[in-house]
Structure formats: structure tokens, C-alpha cells
Design a protein around this nucleic acid. Structure first.
Lengths: 249, 249
DNA sequence: CTTACTTTGTGTCATTTTAACACTTTCAAA
DNA sequence: TTTGAAAGTGTTAAAATGACACAAAGTAAG
């Protein structure tokens, strides 16, 4: 009985539950993911950032915390992908050893709750970081192997993002405040992994009326400068309130 | 080290992780959910069926097991909804007591992984059951209060089902092998919670070509008997292989 | 200063999809 | 035989989609 209260309200790491984050960034060309380099002593070097949860925080808070601890970023778009928990997801000795090296707790059977988040790549430049863990942006298309079951998690996150962006304008979280329609176009193509006709794309976006052009153009580009736009939060609110439920991509 | 292996490969209940199942059934009129009646000693009497997981099973297996233990059903459509884990999801004394009464383990901070499953209601008739736990079908629209955070889970499951049925023909899991188009129509209306034009619905389904009429009609109904159909798995496979990705509801 | 290069930005048309809508048919029960 | 109740069926107007090509606006290089 005493034990119940202690376990229930303490502020310790829960040895059985972790969160892992698939942090997406967009470099105006392709989609990238922020990965941890675990060094050369383990199986696949690269892994998703993650950690055990504290018993005092909820899952979203744990996801935000992992993101914050790695990048220093707060108030980031974050969405749960799901729970992953094969008993053998930590399936080799060196991975178990690595986990023990970064965690206070021994390596029990862990289920992990995966999140994906969308950040502006400029907000986190790995080389400028002084954090102990080394993180790096890797193009999603070049990732073929990750630690543990992180490849499954990445794929699930990609699928979730694909579905989500078809119905909600979350892509703007990956772009700076001011952006061009071409950048938005390339973003959608990167996420959906298929080409979209330029004119049809622009027509659809403009019809939705959720971006507004501003009195400013691209500068210093060696070609016709592009009109800049901003995301129009208010108009999107209006849309959703009238029962709108997808963008039809 | 010894402890690691013991924790990792044992076959005990994991005190920190549970699964809960939203089991949907369709009575040709409306959508129902199978709920546990916890009796009158606790807050809300009704709860989703669920249990702690064993360290030796994966999450899907745990979901299937909970479903099987309650209904005796196997090989049921099951899909993860997500993880729920507010530290205060078990927020009153009587609920803690109740949990302790049905579980060997004390009530630690638990995160739960929610699943939804689709069953043919006829396959589980509560009154005919001899299980100790009493379960009952309750119309989703009449559920206003559930134990713990189960109302949140139910709502998330409903949303997930809505999204899923727009892109995959999972509704057939809720119907008998032979069904009428009107039954399928009412099923879609129940799940999507909006009326669908009868003629447009039938046209869409028939165009998709994933149901086949059989040489048999409804019998004994006091009106024009309906043509019976079966779900055509092969044609659906063909559809998905050619990049098809939604039904457009 | 002219040319070459690169990306932006724009409109039409044919086809498909959607939404709205009402009456006849077929059976059982009274 | 009449009544009631659900099944089954087609058209049309409006909207959305997909396919497609060329002129405009800037920088860079010579």
C-alpha cells in the first residue's frame, strides 16, 4: 500500500516505458530526420533520439522533453505515432550495453511510444551544438538501417505524416514564416513521395485560401524572384469550423 | 546483469503497461461497444476491457489475448489506436482498489496501449456467456461516461475507425458473410456519423467492384427482399496493388 | 550591354466525380 | 385485396481533377 503511493507519484524514470522522436526537417529539397550517432561500438550507429519517461510526466511531455533536451527547442509540433513493444526489440548484446551506458536503470523490457515532430531545420544546426550527444540531419531517403526497431518507427512516422498532411496544413511547421509556393510544392512532393503538377498544386493551394501573399519577393536569386507567402491561420480556422476535412492530395 | 536477463525474458505481468480494447459491433442499426460492468462499488461502472501485458508477449498479442479472454474470439481485426499515459489517469481511490482487486500486481503508474477491434456481434452474445466478468454491448451514442481515461480512448478509437474506413474496406469485419447493400449503407452511416445518399452510396460501392451479388435473397422480411452480397477479397487486392488509396467517403 | 541560364507564374479544356433528387417494385401481414 | 415498408434504379448540373506549354523576370558570364 505504501509502495503503491510511492511508485505512483514519484519522479523517477520508469524502466519500462520510453519515448522516441522522429524529428523531421525540410531543407527546401528533401525531407530529413535528426538522428543520434551512437559511435562505432554498436550495431547500426544511427538511432532515433529517445529516452525513458519519468513517472511524473505524461507521454506528450516526455516527447517534448526529449526534443528539448536534444535541440533546445520548445513548443514544437508533436504528434504520437503509436506504441512499439516487441519483447525482442532490443535484440543484441552491444545494444543492451549501450542502453545501460546512457541510462541509470538496467535494461528491462521496454515498450516505446513514438512521436514525430516537425521543426524548421534552421532552428537546429547540429554543428553549432555543444551537446554531448552528437546529432545530425540525415535525408530520409538515405536511411536504410537504424538501431533497434527504429526503422519500423521511422516508416510508421513517414506514413502518419503522409496521411496527416493530406488533411491538415501541418507542413507550415517545416517552413520559415515567409516561403514561396515552389518551396511548399517541393515540401508536399517530398512528404507524399510523388510528383505533383505545378499548376494544379498552385491552383489548389490558392483556392483553399490559407496562404496570403505579402509585399515582398525573394532577393538575390539568379532567376525570376518568387513571391513570398505566409500561412493564414485565421482562414484555416474558418475552414475547419465549417466541416472541412481534407485537402484532396 | 543477472537481473537484466530475468526481467527481460520472464513471463510475468509488466506492472507498467496495459492494453485496453475498444471492441466494436454492429447490430444493423447502430455501432456498439463491448464494455465491462465493474459493479456498483466504483465510480463509473462501465469500462473498456483491458489488462496488464506479459513481458513475453508483444503489444498486438496482448490485445488479441484480452479480446480472446473476454469473448473467446480469435483472429479478429485489431488495430492499435495509440498509447495513453497521463500520470493521473487512475485518479481516485475506489478505482485503484478495484484495479488491485483484479490484478496480482499493485497499482503502479500505468500507461496503456489502446486497440480497436471489429467483431460480428452475433459471435459474442453476452447473456449466453458464462465468464465471470460481465460484459455487455452498449450503443456508442449512449456512452457518456467511462472509467479512468477510457472515454478519451473510445473517442480516439471512433476517430481512427472513421479515418480507416474511408480508405480500407474493414467494415466487412462487422457484417456477416452475406449482407445487403442497405446494411452496408447503414454501417457506413453509423461509423461516419453522417447520412449518405442511398443512390450515391450504392453507385460508389458497385463501381469499386469489391462486393459480389450472390444467387440468394433475403427471406421472411415484410417488404421487398434485398439482394445478398459477399465481400470480394480478390478484387480488393487488385485495387490496392494498383495504387488505390481511398474510397472517397 | 548582350546573351545565356534558370526558375517563376499563368489558363484552358476534356474527363471524372460529386451531390441532389422521386418513383416503381416486391414482398409479408392484416 | 389492400396496406405498409424497404429495395432498387437514372439523370442532370456543378465541381474537381489531370494534362499540358510558353512568356516573364531576374542573375551571371562573357
Amino acid at each position: 500500500m505504501e509502495k503503491v503511493d510511492k511508485i505512483f507519484h514519484n519522479n523517477e524514470l520508469n524502466p519500462n516505458v520510453s519515448v522516441d522522436c522522429v524529428i523531421f526537417g525540410f531543407d527546401f529539397e528533401k525531407l530529413n530526420v535528426l538522428l543520434i550517432d551512437r559511435g562505432s561500438n554498436v550495431g547500426p550507429r544511427l538511432a532515433l533520439p529517445g529516452n525513458l519517461i519519468y513517472d511524473s510526466e505524461n507521454l506528450n511531455q516526455a516527447g517534448s522533453r526529449v526534443l528539448d533536451e536534444l535541440t533546445g527547442l520548445k513548443n514544437i509540433y508533436l504528434e504520437q505515432v503509436g506504441a512499439f513493444g516487441d519483447p525482442d526489440r532490443i535484440n543484441n548484446k552491444s545494444d543492451q550495453e549501450w542502453l545501460k551506458s546512457i541510462r541509470a536503470e538496467p535494461t528491462a523490457r521496454v515498450i516505446t511510444v513514438a512521436y514525430f515532430s516537425l521543426v524548421k531545420m534552421d532552428d537546429y544546426l547540429p554543428q553549432a551544438s555543444s551537446f554531448a550527444k552528437t546529432a545530425e540531419w540525415v535525408s530520409v531517403n538515405e536511411i536504410t538501417e537504424l538501431a533497434f526497431d527504429h526503422m519500423d518507427i521511422l516508416n510508421a512516422a513517414k506514413d502518419k505524416l503522409k496521411e496527416k498532411i493530406k488533411t491538415q496544413p501541418i507542413g507550415f511547421n517545416l517552413l520559415p514564416e515567409k516561403f514561396t509556393l515552389s518551396q511548399l510544392h517541393r515540401l508536399y512532393e517530398s512528404i507524399l513521395e510523388k510528383p505533383l503538377d505545378k499548376r494544379n498544386f498552385r491552383r489548389k493551394i490558392q483556392k483553399l485560401d490559407i496562404v496570403s501573399s505579402i509585399k515582398e519577393k525573394q532577393r538575390g536569386v539568379p532567376h525570376k524572384p518568387s513571391q513570398l507567402f505566409i500561412f493564414n491561420q485565421e482562414k484555416y480556422q474558418l475552414l475547419t469550423e465549417t466541416g472541412f476535412d481534407n485537402f484532396g492530395f
